[in-house]
Amino acid sequence: MKHIISILLENEAGALSRVAGLFSARGYNIESLTVAPTDDASLSRMTLVTRGTEDIVEQICKQLNKLVDVVKLVDLTGDTYVERELMLIKVHAEDQVRDEVKRLVDIFHGQIIDVTDTSYTLEVTGDSEKIDALLQALTKITILEVVRSGRLGIARGEKAFC
């Protein structure tokens, strides 16, 4: 089962490689991983998506907690949460395809953020299913480039993680 884990870690050189190294050393898989400093510059917030049985995910959380650089972590999957991903996508767009792409972008509440005579660059945010759905809808169009941010997650409600 998919788990989305939020981690607060010291914003130190090497902290990211400790997390990544732990996954490769113990044979866990990382589906996506995003990390950036928070409003407190000494901390980084990481969102990590992984898959595994309950036992494996429990081990993953314990092992992550054991890293000296990890301040706090929560498995968001246990509660309700909001998930978002950003995708930038460059497609070949000429003639009547330009209109079709424009329509699709509107349906998905995305934006065209760069234009040339032969291409569009699109920006879409949403949960991963929505991003996947747009990609699916674009299969008849020539995709030149795709960049996905990986998932970000935050728990619903007023309670704060840090």
């Binding site: 090497g14 490689s17 400790r18 000296v68």
Partner: peptide
């Protein structure tokens, strides 16, 4: 050295 020893230490520092 920090990279090489990372998987076999409790923690390391540069």
């Amino acid at each position: 050295s920090v990279g090489i020893t990372r998987p076999v230490v409790k923690h390391n520092f540069l």
